[in-house]
Amino acid sequence: MSFGRQLAAIAGKDLRIELRAREILYTATLFSVVVIVVFLFSGFGDSGETRRAAPGVLWVTIAFVGTLVFGRTFQREREQNAIAGLLLAPSIVGPLFAAKLLVNLALLGAIELIVVPVVTVTFGVPLAAVGGAVALVVALGTLGFAALGTVLAASLSTLRLREVLLPIVLYPLCLPLLLACVKATQLLVAGDGLGAARGWLSIVVAFDVLYLALSRWLFGQALEGSA
């Protein structure tokens, strides 16, 4: 089977399971809304202050939801050791990584479609004015974050304490990316426009490329022992 067909088969299977069960989408979306509400109660004062907090809240929420999504999508392969069957297929590692990354991106993207408007509205950010630019930052940041999350979730999925270990490992590693995303979003929310955020955005893109390359290489290494 070609790369594309293997990818489509695995990603299609995962998305079909999720669309029928909807367990990740429902729980993670609800969780993200709860997180945002908790932040709302953490006592930001006037509207200027809440607006300045919005980028941080947005990215912390995405980071929290991310670990839920990444952990769960790979867990399905570990149940009844489905991964062992998958790995029997020839040259499967590349398509498997791409498929898992795509599924993670699709799920996290779907949740972000709700998270971004909710954060912008509740934290007093003019969505119409900055929405497009913020969406670009969110899309770019999510790519690198999901790449790292995919390889780490795959690696940790054999361990008993994987749910706790994933955030412990993932957050420090993707901190530079999240920091650049928060900074870029801050500039956009402050109304400085895409030109001002270009420096941080190019850092985000560079990190994306590095994380993608590293994750792709290490994904194969991490799975070698599972077959």
Partner: peptide, 15 residues
Amino acid sequence: SEMTRRICAVLGILG
């Protein structure tokens, strides 16, 4: 386990 060693090698390089 062998798996933990692999995972840790991956983490060490990523780190």
